[in-house]
Design a protein around this nucleic acid. Sequence first.
DNA 1: GACAAAATCAAACAAGTGTTTTAAACTAAC
DNA 2: GTTAGTTTAAAACACTTGTTTGATTTTGTC
Lengths: 224, 224
Amino acid sequence: MVNSPDNRSSGSGDGTVRERLLAAAEELFSEQGFNGTSIRDIAAAAKCNIASVNYYFGGKENLYVELWRRHHAQIVGVRIESINEVMSRSGGKPGLEMLLKSFAEAFLGPLMDSNKGPRLMKLMAREMIDRNLPKDMFGKEVIRPTMTAMQEALSKACPALEQSKIPLVVFSLVSQLLHTILIKAMHQGIDDQELAQFDPAMVIDHVVAFTAAGIRAYAKEEGK
Amino acid sequence: MVNSPDNRSSGSGDGTVRERLLAAAEELFSEQGFNGTSIRDIAAAAKCNIASVNYYFGGKENLYVELWRRHHAQIVGVRIESINEVMSRSGGKPGLEMLLKSFAEAFLGPLMDSNKGPRLMKLMAREMIDRNLPKDMFGKEVIRPTMTAMQEALSKACPALEQSKIPLVVFSLVSQLLHTILIKAMHQGIDDQELAQFDPAMVIDHVVAFTAAGIRAYAKEEGK
DNA sequence: GACAAAATCAAACAAGTGTTTTAAACTAAC
DNA sequence: GTTAGTTTAAAACACTTGTTTGATTTTGTC
């Protein structure tokens, strides 16, 4: 029985068929969703046989999981590294705007990359609504690490901010960033004309300024 | 041939089978998505025959559209009425916090209703990513009217705010409200423990205060 | 009750799904 | 050249999908 070629991790750049399958799956899953994409579509796009999906990954679901593992670690890594970099560069007490801007750029950067950015955005938005990953993989490995890192950094950057407000502030920040992603990813069809004016760079500057103002209002109120 | 019972609009509370189908479809579509729900599931939940979906609605897709028509007009109506009410009550120049809070409550209210609220939330989130409605119906009939009404109200409530900033401000406000919805709708699985602390009423107060501070920062900067 | 329209039903339909099977082609070691 | 292992290929499998059919029951009207 031939059934274990998949223990060969995706790290090394070996099999072309395997790589082609992952690339095609990423494209199609992000565009049409997990359930909306058949392995026949994937195989056709990768120019290989239908059975190859099962041969290399042991099933459609495993292909999807493998696809996520390739990216989520890197995305989370970029965000946390960015925070750490700002923290160390400023000796543990960064300026508020600097921290926010750095985080916003690290948050959106990998998703704005013209190559695979839009695909990852859609993939992420879909996974938030239709969970196809193993239970808790998305929350525990993607969302939580970013959240806590940012909360800790914010706490140090703005000691005057009451602890209980910090999760709310991060909530507001992340919600704006995610909405930026969503709009960009779904720009086709929802509202072309109106939303075309939302240039990413401009939106980032706005979100930073807007969020900083909101935080300072809390900090001042508390500082009294 | 018997094929036109569907010109009977859903307005009057007539057929029980028709109503049951719409209710079951709303439940299942919101929970599993359009493609993830079979008309056999729907028929089983509505306790009627499979063919009834085609008999009453002429297909799965039309059932979905009909389901949306029932709600989106009301949801949009509540939001715009709420804005108009605040505007007229304050003689065209409402307090900023009052306008924001009123809008936030009108925005989330229908979606927080314990009965069908969560279902509509999920339905809306899904439709934003996977468009199953006729082209532009979602953008033109749901999103746009609310947006423009709020932008006009904000412009009058805060004349010191530069016109070009208004769409950005509404963007920030709406993104926070939508994120509130998303978290509440998807609370299962993403991050139970951490996100349980986000009580809706508290989140609304936060969003209002946070957004007001962001707006005032823009207004002051402009007023100088 | 008789009749016609409306509503319900079980069954079948054609098409598409993920997966498995079985055989053929390729690759490298001896 | 033979052999063993890996990779590709086409076909079949069992199942689900949305829709349609044709018959049967229910409903309302005279």
